[in-house]
Amino acid sequence: MAKRRFDLKALPGFTTIAVICFVALYLPIIILVAYAFNAATSTSEWGGFSLKWFASAWNNDQVIDATIRSFQIAVLAATFATIAATMAALATTRTKAYRGLTFKYAFINQPLMVPEIVTAVALLIFFSRIKVWTGYAGLGYLIGAHTAFCIPFAYLPIRARLESMDLTLERAAADLYATPFKAFRRVTLPLLWPGILAGFMLAFVISLDDVVITNFVKLGGQDTLPTYMLGQIRRGITPEINAISTAFLLLSILIVTLFFFASRKRD
């Protein structure tokens, strides 16, 4: 291999800065995970190895309840967001360039730039009005809110995939007598699938993780796992929070890994 003219690794301090970054990123998480196995009631003094906090979390109905709710919301919101994002991506890449297309890109991605707290307050006011009018008090508000802020996250990988796809393939399908619908189902969709999976995965993780908007929009008894944990921390931390965090972390890693391999296989 030809020697590269410019090697980032040769810069002075590269290794040091890299190590500092990794330590800053992962050391707190490692400590958090370690103390999940603490036998003592403290999150700073080691009292021997134990799994009792995992057991305590497992037997805590509120934790289980919040976890199930988190997943319900994430699955539904990510699904809706992915469908909407796929349609938006098709509409912005598979039509002839027209005036206002760039504006449309910005419009779709705007939720990424609006401060979350602003969206949260806006949704709170909007949904409370709807609640007064309709009397509806279900999970719909949370699912709707999550869907909304998940769309740009699902949109980005799907659009990237569509843009990198060879348009001639769709043209070839049309040339071989495929109607637009059949061309989409037989050629575009199968090739787009990895992008859709990636978009869904991102949306899912973003939804699972959300605190700010959820905290504003949720009604009484609609805690998700993150808002439940936030509530617990206000009352003083026990290693149970560490155990929940650890389980949450493992679950996230597991899901992301599964999606990663699923999308790789389709590629």
């Binding site: 070839a172 040339d175 050629v187």
Partner: peptide, 17 residues
């Protein structure tokens, strides 16, 4: 194109991967 009894061999082949 899908209503024309005409087929194309593309420069890039455009085989479905």
């Amino acid at each position: 194109p899908f209503k024309r009894p005409v087929n194309t061999v593309f420069q890039s082949y455009a085989l479905f991967p």
